[in-house]
Structures are given as structure tokens and as C-alpha cells.
Computed example of a mutant assay.
Amino acid sequence: MTENNPGSAVGSLDPADDAPEWTDAMFDAAEFSVGGEVVRTATGYLGKTGVVRGRPAQRGRAKQQVTLRLDPDVVERFRESGPGWQGRINEALRRVVGL
């Protein structure tokens, strides 16, 4: 078992070493505040590829998370169509129930 030594050096765990360099787009999308007061709100959030402009606004009620068991071939068919496959399942279900 390893020993917990509070005097040991952190080593390569310095977050500043791993932080990506900020781009102009990141600064443009970031929240700006002075003295704790927000001067400009953020216009997006930072994703793996840089600035993402955010999710669409909620229309009416929020979606409900559920657990649903589907046949593997059904899931595979929707996944083959690429990102957004869960939303396409939702659209297909809405059509079937007449919404």
C-alpha cells in the first residue's frame, strides 16, 4: 500500500502546465467582470475544440431523462446516422404517437 506523505512534491500535477493557450475566440466568448460585477456575460462555453456557442434555448418543458431498453439493431441503425441519433429516436417516437 502506498504511504500518504504530505511533504511530497506534486511534480507534474501543476494545472498551469496542462492548460491550453487561450485564443481570441475564447476571450471573446468569456464572461468579463470587474470587482465581482459582471460587465459582459459569456456567449458560449469552452469545449474540446474551442468555443461552443451553447445549447438552444429550452422551449416549454425540459426533456425528461429515462432508461429505455431497445433492440440492438434499432440502436445500431440510429447510431449509424451519426451524432444526434438520440434526438432522431425522439423524433421517430413523436411521429408514431402523433405529436
Rank of each mutant, 00 (worst) to 15 (best):
T2E: 07
V38C: 05
G7P: 00
R95L: 11
A9N: 11
G44N: 07
D71Y: 02
V10R: 15
Q58L: 10
L93E: 01
A16G: 11
D24I: 06
V75Q: 01
S81D: 13
P15R: 13
V96C: 03
V96D: 12
T41H: 15
M26I: 07
P20Q: 10
P83N: 06
R88P: 04
D28M: 04
M26P: 07
R79H: 00
Q86C: 11
R69N: 13
T23D: 04
V34G: 02
P72C: 03
I89H: 02
Q58T: 13
L99C: 02
E21T: 14
M26S: 09
G60W: 08
D73Q: 10
A92N: 06
S12K: 11
D17I: 08
P56W: 01
V51Y: 09
G82I: 06
E31H: 00
M26G: 04
Y45W: 12
D14I: 03
R77I: 07
T67V: 10
S81L: 14
S8D: 14
F32V: 15
Q86V: 09
E31G: 08
E80Y: 00
G82S: 01
R77G: 11
F32E: 12
I89K: 01
R61W: 02
R61C: 03
R53S: 13
D17G: 14
Y45P: 14
V97E: 02
E3H: 03
A62H: 06
A57C: 02
T43M: 10
T2C: 04
V66L: 13
P56V: 04
